[in-house]
Write a protein that binds this DNA or RNA. Structure first.
Lengths: 143, 143
DNA sequence: GCAGTTGTAACTAACTCTGTTACATCAAGG
DNA sequence: CCTTGATGTAACAGAGTTAGTTACAACTGC
């Protein structure tokens, strides 16, 4: 299948919430967000539910309720979104334990963990440097 | 599922080939590699087949045949392995096109592509800086 | 109480990944 | 020339993930 798109959907929803807030709409329903993402409202509720549990958005119940940003869009980084949606790391080790009788099988996992860990650290640092406000700005810039 | 482990298996196989070569074994069979990785020989043949198509290993046919490195392990980078096994990029855009009537739906994909592309570039640069020889060295260092 | 919304369970369909079996193909070496 | 041992690859199974859908209980503003 194509790669994980949950991160993309989450950022899309947050950018849309930020723009709506700027335009005076304090809350959006899952249906309104779903209309922009072109998907089902339940997908959005599941995704925004993850973000709510991470404290990035708040939600109300009952009639006239909906979703809003819990913080200013300048204060929400893509790293927080990444962690909130439980995105998998880009590389995985062996599914089953390699043969520990073999010198390569014995040492390969720590060696690769170090390489992979370094790459993930850099990826996280980069995600931490981009905010929802940045993405919204670039989004509105695009023609 | 756990993340993609093909990259790990490919590097494992290459490191094992490099060590075997250093010890005077010029070729290994898929069964011998599979015994170190703890998997099925067909998995290894498929994986090493990808590496062969990328020119990283060479293979012979017939009795007594097997796999060997096509280059010195110092000259094979993890980036080449990454591309050879067709690893997916870490982030994916929407599966279906977002609503282009919405300003966010219209501009979000180019905006996120830029962010994701930057991260992938850095990942590639990092992978290009690590060779199979480096991994083998760290592997043998591990206790 | 009504209406509109969230939260969530249950399910489907499509897809990926690893692993397995089976077998055709190939070539080294007697 | 034949045996032997290896690759290449198709076909399939089983587990798992993902997006999407339907349905409905729970909640709350008015």
């Amino acid at each position: 299948m194509a790669a994980n798109s949950r991160m993309t959907i989450a950022v899309h929803a947050l950018a849309w919430l930020a723009l709506a807030q700027r335009q005076g709409h304090d809350v959006l329903t899952s249906g309104q967000v779903a209309a922009s993402v072109s998907t089902n409202p339940v997908i959005i509720r599941r995704c925004l539910g993850d973000l709510r549990r991470a404290g990035l958005v708040s939600v109300t119940r009952g009639a006239g309720s909906g979703w809003s940003l819990a913080r200013a869009p300048e204060a929400v980084t893509l790293l927080e979104v990444h962690d909130a949606v439980g995105q998998e790391p880009p590389f995985g080790l062996h599914h089953t334990e390699p043969n520990l009788e073999c010198p390569v099988g014995r040492g390969i996992r720590p060696a690769l963990s170090q390489v992979y860990g370094q790459i993930e650290q850099n990826m996280r640092r980069e995600l931490a440097g981009v905010t929802v406000a940045d993405v919204l700005h670039d989004t509105l810039q695009a023609r």
